[in-house]
Design a protein around this nucleic acid. Sequence first.
DNA 1: ATTTCAATGTCGCCT
DNA 2: AGGCGACGTTGAAAT
Lengths: 268, 268
Amino acid sequence: MPQLSLMLNPSLREAAGLIADAVAKHRLLIVLGRCSVRYTGRGASRLGPGDRLVIVKPDGAVLVHRPRGYSPVNWQPESSSITAEETGEGLLLRSVRGRPREILEVLFTRLDLVLAVDGLEDTAEFIEYLDESEIRDYLAEHPEEIEEGLHVIRKERPIGDGYADIVARDKEGNYVVIEVKRVTAGKDAVLQLHRYVETLRRENPGARVRGILVAPAIAKDARSLLNSLGLEYRQIDIQRLYRKIAAAQARTVTQTRSILDFFKKTKH
Amino acid sequence: MPQLSLMLNPSLREAAGLIADAVAKHRLLIVLGRCSVRYTGRGASRLGPGDRLVIVKPDGAVLVHRPRGYSPVNWQPESSSITAEETGEGLLLRSVRGRPREILEVLFTRLDLVLAVDGLEDTAEFIEYLDESEIRDYLAEHPEEIEEGLHVIRKERPIGDGYADIVARDKEGNYVVIEVKRVTAGKDAVLQLHRYVETLRRENPGARVRGILVAPAIAKDARSLLNSLGLEYRQIDIQRLYRKIAAAQARTVTQTRSILDFFKKTKH
DNA sequence: ATTTCAATGTCGCCT
DNA sequence: AGGCGACGTTGAAAT
């Protein structure tokens, strides 16, 4: 059970000790109050006074959240070293990151709530499904989903200084480079595929090398770029594919992360 | 001044009302407790029981933070619709996003702290410096930073299906395409520049077209790729450039966002 | 609404 | 530590 140290509407002076102690002892620190923020490092920013929620995690990550929006207005990643001290202008929380050198400063002028938490336990494994590697692996096992007669040579093949998702040969013996996307493909994906095709052509003079972009959709301009580069596009239905992947994994009983289990309609 | 409604170590039943009320009335809600998380939408994930910090913002953004790390383990962007209700298994916080259709569910089994906050005021403007457009604009005004004798024709020129940062002529009348990066340049940047150069060559048969990549650093493989494509690289010192930009803006008194002011050694 | 590109992107994997 | 590509990328600007 977590242990909480809580202060409501404390003065800056009253809370200074708790805040400094919390960051020094790597507790989770939550502060709600009025503050200004200043950041400098890879970029730089300033934010005038306002009511914000500031979180300092045990690993040194710092988040400054405004009342709206998904993303923090300012932040510091884990392993930044943090200090807190009272100054003439307010209570200054200062986070310094080594490499790259970055400094985040939060100056509090009013505190509504200060909370320090100890003894948090969170060891559960985070399980993600439906990422690109799952599609890629399934398509490598079932290349007929892309085209009849494909024979996979290998997947994640180093080509030049990148990796082609799948390299295969078609029924006529031509090389086929396959690039898989789980979201709408843009020009980036087309150029990536083009690069791999060109490299394979250089490595195999005389051989015909095809390039197939596999994605649920393709942007209009990306489509014309793809055409002009002589590449091909195969649309796939991600949802349909996932049902197949789930079924395939269900047959592999030893699978640790059973996707079928996830799709069960259990109430949590 | 914000108004706080706070409960410490409440039972699920005790807190259900406050939580449901807070999300319904678009208060800022902060919950610390033990929970499981389930997400499905573009992707899918599951997370078993653990102690976490859950934040629901007035605009419907939801964040689930584990004790470590900068990024939330699960989240929902603003404008998701949120409900909370007690079930047989625990207190279920449910957030639904419309397009794309995504559902985030947090099932609490123990509550350490529940806090609802009203009346937050945060109207300050967030001011950012040092983004790429500032460098590009400055270099377009001061091309001598790249090379003596450059004459800028235009910036952000549409080329093919992208935009060249700067197009200029050198003192010998050759076209020069300039690609600016504020971080280490990779292969992408090299290929992007190469495509613009190629396009300009096609548009101007017979003309010599140079390509210069301007960045604080370049990746090793990107460098050899650049060389093999006959392109050029100019290193720039971002920090030094920013001091110049600041000085230039200082002379423009009407500038709203004075970067010089930011660099002043004021204590916040 | 779609597409494109930058981002203090972050994160994980691999060399 | 550097390079590379995916990400539930997010976010903003332009079309």
